[in-house]
Design a protein around this nucleic acid. Structure first.
Lengths: 116, 116
DNA sequence: CCGGCTTATCGCATGATGACGATGAACAGG
DNA sequence: CCTGTTCATCGTCATCATGCGATAAGCCGG
């Protein structure tokens, strides 16, 4: 229940980004969505990658590869899985690729898990 | 290492359930834990089962089977996956088995996802 | 103790996943 | 233009996941 809120103070940039997610957190659609996101997170290397990106300790693909005890091609595969699930995004920056988390999807994941 | 604990005041019933989880929400251990839990949730049928159990719409294995469009043996496999991940528990009740969520693990999952 | 009910497990087929090295594609610098 | 760097993709192999029917195992009512 929201308070009357007469004049909304200017939201900080972090909250102004994108509109709230109105999709339901349960039902068949939500179940499959949660399953897809959970599956994408269902590997230690991918969890690790997510953490690196969240804390911005790495962003460039090469740096991520350096942080993991895996071959470059394997890391690329994991990045692909995370990207296909919508959890991360890859921006091409010259010869490099800068990966970063997709905050919207991450919030969605938290909402879905929270609904359990 | 237990504290000296002279006289602990009687905790209210809600808090007496189980002790708070003191394990860290990040680090290699946590990464693997999150990966394991996420992997267990990484299938629509298992998400569905979790929801059924959380809302207590079903508890007996047979009822769960009736709710899913899958063979009994397949459902049993999914229940096994969830149980091995520690997300649910199965209490034998005569010839039946009553499954229910393991609140502690579910809270742990939420904490781990929340740490992202 | 027998037969029926409920659940778990086995065995198997099929497809997905995870790992790697090798190769390809795109770009920046000379 | 080459050349090196960076990343994605391919091919391959081993392993795991998912589904099912069939069968085993445990319990309750006669």
């Amino acid at each position: 229940m929201a308070a009357p809120l007469k004049s909304i103070p200017p939201a900080p940039a972090d909250l102004r980004r994108d509109p709230p997610d109105v999709r339901p957190v349960e039902g068949t659609e939500a179940d499959e969505e949660l399953a897809t996101l959970a599956k994408a997170l269902g590997h230690p290397a991918r969890v690790r990658i997510m953490r690196l990106l969240v804390r911005r300790e790495a962003c460039i693909c090469g740096d991520i590869v350096d942080e993991l005890p895996l071959a470059q091609s394997t890391v690329s595969q994991h990045l692909k899985v995370l990207k296909e699930a919508g959890l991360i995004r890859g921006d091409i920056d010259g010869p490099r690729v800068c990966y970063c988390v997709e905050p919207r999807t991450l919030r969605r994941l938290k909402a879905l898990v929270g609904s359990l």
